[in-house]
Computed example of a mutant assay.
Amino acid sequence: MTKLTSTETLIPAPAGKLFVREWRLEAVHGDQCIIMFHDSLGSVDQWRDFPARIAEATGLRVIAYDRLGFGRSDANPRLLAPDFVRDEAVSALRFIRDALSIDRMILFGHSVGGGMAVAAGAAFADETAGVITLAAQAFVEDRTISGIERARIAFQAEGQIERLARYHGDKARWVLDAWIETWLSPDRADWTLDDDLRRLRSPILALHGDHDEYGPRAHPDRIAALAGARAEAVLLKDCHHMPHREMPDEVLRLTAEFVESL
């Protein structure tokens, strides 16, 4: 049986160091890899064993990193800018690619990380072999806003910030505020992924739970309709906003099939 190895590193970027973890089967050769973008409250550690399972299912290198201000990366000195989804490609991914000598890549993102995967795929169109979004938002609409409003109330309960602090340390309050205040800002009301989707040239697979608390099936349908390349939207039955935890085997199967099709 081929052994799976894992390595960790800190990669310098202009605003601070980024924590990066890589999984690789010993027999893997070649430069193509999968790069994972976490959600608004996420981190490398919160992916749990899912990146390792993707590496085993696809046979590719898998790289996940903590965005600036999250997990084990350096603190972010400011709140997120209105264009933070598109900015991730130039403020972080560019430096990770250079440091790890990444050429061809498949981009995998959960929730807002799915939007970042799309935007990065458009920014690095020649280097992107494919994009997979998981419970991604393609625009701002009522269910997104109401879901975040409910979460803001829930996080006022005792112990909730401490739960985030297990992953983000003293950055936990910043992480929560960055999510809530950015998405509820009036400046974000008209945000969409439309331009990035139209510039995307690689195939894209949009996975979405049929009971997602933060967006209906209109999101994967819009992703598939506007993408400028081969696109497929898959609605996962009896699934909410965390498909990689609720039905990991199905997400792994669809991911492996998509990667094989490339």
Rank of each mutant, 00 (worst) to 15 (best):
R217W: 11
S40C: 05
H110R: 01
L226R: 02
Y167V: 01
I223M: 06
A178K: 03
A256F: 09
R198P: 00
N76A: 14
A52Y: 11
R61S: 09
M105H: 10
D66G: 02
F84I: 03
T58F: 07
A233Q: 06
E8S: 12
D177C: 04
R163H: 14
R104K: 14
G71C: 07
Q156R: 08
G59P: 05
R150T: 12
P248C: 13
D187R: 04
A218H: 11
E257R: 06
T255I: 10
L100W: 08
S202Y: 09
A229K: 00
R104G: 07
L226S: 04
A225P: 01
G215F: 08
D194F: 14
R152D: 15
P248H: 15
D126I: 05
W191G: 01
L193P: 09
L41M: 08
L226I: 05
R198K: 15
F37K: 00
A15E: 14
H168E: 09
F95L: 11
H208E: 11
P14Y: 13
Y167C: 02
L80P: 03
W179A: 09
A123M: 10
D39C: 02
I102H: 11
I63K: 03
M247K: 15
P203D: 11
S40K: 01
R201V: 15
R67E: 04
R253F: 14
P203W: 11
I11G: 07
D170L: 06
I180E: 06
I34C: 08
